[in-house]
Structures are given as C-alpha cells and as structure tokens.
Design a protein around this nucleic acid. Structure first.
Lengths: 143, 143
DNA sequence: ATATAAAAAGATAATAAACTCTTTTAATTC
DNA sequence: GAATTAAAAGAGTTTATTATCTTTTTATAT
C-alpha cells in the first residue's frame, strides 16, 4: 500500500506525538527503537518531515523532535503526501497517464470507489486522534 | 497500489480475453502494443500467468495466448495474487508482522475497512466482466 | 570558550524491482 | 524433415528503493 519510507514515517510521527505530550523531545535513537526502524533511515525521514513542517526539531543537548499543537492536526494524508507524493490521489490503477472519468481504463470506476474511501480515511484521521487511543495500551508500534 | 508487473498483467489479461473471444490467439508483440507495455517484460509476466493456468498458450505458428471459458472467470484478485502475492490480504499498513485484531497497530482498524472493500472488489470483478464493457468502446487500455 | 549532544546534510552501499537480451524448446506448415 | 513461428527459459542490465556511514551544523551546558 505505502512505501517503507511512509510506513516508518507514520509510525515515527505517532511515536513522537505520544512522547511529546508532556513537552519533552525525542531523539532519533529513541524513535528508531520505539518503532523498530533502522536508525539512519528514520533520521532521513524525520528530516524530510521536519523540512516540510509536519514535525518540529531542535538540535543540541536535550534536543530532538517534538509536536506542537498544530502538528497534532497533521493527518495521515499529510504524511503520505510528504513522503510518497500524491500518487495515491492521481495514479490510475493500471498506470495509464490520462485515465479519468471521460476516458477511463477498464477498472477505473471500480477503483475510484475504493480510492475515495481510502483518501477520505487518511484525510480524516489525524496524529492527534491516535494519542488518546495509544494511551489505552491497546495499540502497538512494534511486535 | 500494485506493482508495475501487476498493472501490466491485468491490462494484458483484459486485452487477451478481448481478442480471444472469437477463438483466435494473441502473440506477445500484439499484447505489448495493445497494452503499451515493454515486450520482453510482458512476455515474462504472461509466462508466469500461463504457468499458473490463469491463461493458456500454445507455441509455434498461429500460436499465442488465449482464454478458454474457465479463464474468463479469473478475478482481478487471482491476477494480483499470482503476480504480487498475497501481501494485500495479509500485510499491515505499517509493516508490523503480527498486527491483527488482538494486537493491532494504531491504524489497524481504519485500514481493515478499506482493505475489506478493496479485496471484495477485486474478488468480485472477473476478466469476463470486462469483455462486454470493452465492446462498448468506452474503455481504454492505452492513452 | 570548550566540550558535548543531537539534528542536518552529503555521500555511499545493498537490495529489490523493472526491464532487456539471448538461447532453447515446442508446434506448425510447406 | 527443413524452415519458420512463437512461447519458455535463462541470464544480464538498469533504475529505484531501502539502508548505512561520515561529516557538518546548531544548540546547550559547564
């Protein structure tokens, strides 16, 4: 469904949001451990998300990544777009460049329904929404 | 959503089904042109689909790929599974190995809904279903 | 100021996916 | 049965993704 980059990105964002509830910051090593992701790879991903202002960071001792209140409104769609681009919005299931309602590929209409649901879902779910859920201890970021 | 392999595979299967309605066979070159896919690559894909009996083929002059009546009942899901495996059935959106209803990742429930719809759709749509639709001239395999 | 901590940036390496080329095998037609 | 046609199989190349390593910059604390 998503690239590894995106999978790690979503996990990391949820992890950081969770940890930064009390205002503390999270370092790359802690994120890597907490989400079972390769340290240097997740570093690149967080850099990118930071550059795009979906998360904040400060350098130096006691530095790290953190969420501010607006960051909590970041949706899954924002993260997916930042890391995987908008292929999910635009791309035809069969890879046709100009597939649309007027000139549809044979599976266009079937997939439009699915994609509509998927897009709605990732746009409606924000990172903030997951905070409360995770507190219950009923959800997991590593196995 | 799917790999290139799978995109080409679905297009090729629809194309062959279409062309073999009157009992004729379609060669790799014709498939490649008709679906705008790299010739040698689509050859590999058809080989694999043929090995898995989702389409039939015979060698030599007047040979090529063709559908018999049971082949028409092949669903999109069959093709996806043959080429991309069953990741779409089993894989967690965040890449967790043992993510399930009992031990869900934070986005598990959201994605289960989407996946359920997607799987239902690809299982219900067969290649045969597209034949009639394509005859109308309202659908396209190349742009 | 100096040492230290941590992210940012740049460069490189490994793996997998996508694509191509060549040879072999099977079937057909003459 | 020789020539031809077309898929099957095997091997190889290119490109993209994933992952790692090294250096630089920025901030903090002592």
């Amino acid at each position: 469904m998503f690239s590894k980059t995106c999978e790690y990105g979503i996990k990391a964002m949820i992890f950081v949001a969770q940890k930064s509830k009390d205002g503390s910051r999270v370092g790359i090593k802690e994120i890597a451990k907490g989400t079972d992701a390769p340290e240097h790879f997740i570093a690149k991903i967080m850099q990118e998300l930071s550059r795009k202002k979906l998360v904040h960071s400060i350098k130096g001792p006691n530095g790290g990544f953190y969420f501010d209140k607006t960051d909590l409104k970041t949706s899954l769609a924002d993260i997916v777009q930042a890391l995987d681009g908008n292929a999910i919005y635009t791309d035809c299931a069969l890879g046709l460049k100009t597939c649309n309602a007027k000139k549809p590929c044979p599976v266009h209409h079937q997939f439009q329904d699915i994609k509509k649901n998927l897009i709605k879902m990732i746009e409606e779910n924000t990172i903030g929404d997951f905070n409360a859920k995770l507190d219950s201890g009923k959800f997991f970021l590593v196995n």
